[in-house]
Design a protein around this nucleic acid. Structure first.
Length: 333
DNA sequence: ATCATTTGACCGGC
DNA sequence: GCCGGTCAAATGAT
């Protein structure tokens, strides 16, 4: 078993354990739907399948399709393939909110380890900010139908609401070695292109965990005070075009890599719902950790454009927290 | 040259 | 007909 397989195996096992914990909590949460639970179960099965494949154990079925309890998933996938309209309702869908504030150091680009390609942007009725639409970069190559929507929160300019739809069905095969094969131009922005994607995720998650831990205290302090919309929440890197500098954006991305456990906090607006810290919220994505697309920054720029101009902050300094909802259950991390 | 983003057009559901 | 979501040609970035 190669080094990467070993790490991948550990990742999958840890992820499976965390997902099982989420399921346990979900089972005790009245607000959690059956769909949520089945989705978590499917993710657990996926993790085991991937773990087995990491040790070259032939499960006899491709990931995401062979488990006995995956009827819904299989149906979803078929819907995705054959029925675009029904698909949309059937596809698993979950929302994550990311809050960020200037003032804390977050080293390096934050990303979910998956590559996304923007395919649209719309002004949404009643929303202050446009919604960006993204799909998996590997859609054309592998038929991966995972998508996400990114929208800046009306209430708090420091919050991005990110809705994921569908599961990644692409595999790691195309990018398992981090360095892209000829032809594909994956992100050259990765901190260490020689690392495998999974390893990068671990590395990033560790950095992020530290950042989040460091930031949580201050964030908690600020929770009771409304964000100040009078100045831009993001700083635009120096190489950003001047016309975009009015639309400040964080160097953060939707998904924060892997496991981190630190105290949840309660939001007054969401008391009564279920809280727990989650690890690898992207565990729902079975698309192998992809080298991050360089589009992440621009994603947020367009998704979080703020019509304000003014003071700026170092790009690498943010305060972060996120919460995550799936169906009626809200998760905080 | 190739791939990503932008943005108006288009489509389907309600 | 409105609106959210997607397509695809034009444009931009590397």
């Amino acid at each position: 078993m190669g080094d990467w397989d070993h790490k991948n195996l550990i990742n999958e096992l840890v992820q499976g354990k965390d997902l099982a914990r989420q399921l346990q909590i979900s089972l005790n949460a009245p607000s959690s739907s059956q769909e949520t639970r089945e989705f978590l179960i499917q993710k657990i099965v996926d993790s085991f399948e991937k773990a087995l494949s990491a040790i070259n154990w032939n499960t006899g079925s491709p990931p995401l399709s062979g488990s006995p309890r995956s009827e819904d998933s299989e149906k979803d996938l078929k819907d995705q393939e054959h029925n675009a309209s029904r698909k949309r309702k059937a596809m698993p869908r979950w929302t994550k909110q990311i809050r960020f504030k200037p003032g804390l150091g977050v080293e390096g680009p934050l990303d979910d380890g998956y590559s996304w390609r923007k395919y649209g942007q719309k002004d949404i009725l009643g929303a202050k900010y446009p919604r960006g639409y993204y799909r998996c970069t590997h859609r054309n190559v592998q038929g991966c139908l995972a998508t996400k929507q990114v929208q800046k929160s009306d209430e708090d300019p420091y919050v991005l609401e990110i809705t994921y739809r569908g599961k990644h069905t692409c595999t790691q095969a195309s990018n398992v070695n981090g360095a892209s094969p000829s032809g594909t131009r994956e992100n050259n922005k990765e901190p260490n292109p020689n690392l495998g994607a999974q390893q990068q995720n671990v590395q990033q998650s560790q950095e992020l965990l530290m950042s989040l831990r460091a930031g949580l205290r201050i964030l908690t302090q600020n929770l009771d005070t409304p964000a100040q919309p009078s100045f831009p929440p993001f700083y635009v890197p120096s190489n950003t075009k001047p016309e975009n500098q009015a639309f400040l954006t964080p160097m953060i991305e939707n998904n924060f890599a892997q496991s981190f456990n630190y105290p949840s906090y309660m939001s007054p607006a969401t008391s009564g719902t279920t809280y727990f810290s989650i690890s690898d919220p992207d565990g729902v994505n079975t698309c192998g950790a992809n080298p991050t697309s360089g589009s992440q920054i621009n994603d947020i720029i367009s998704a979080a454009n703020s019509p304000t101009v003014g003071s700026s902050f170092p790009l690498d300094q943010f305060q972060l927290d996120q919460n995550f909802t799936f169906d009626n259950t809200r998760f905080f991390s």
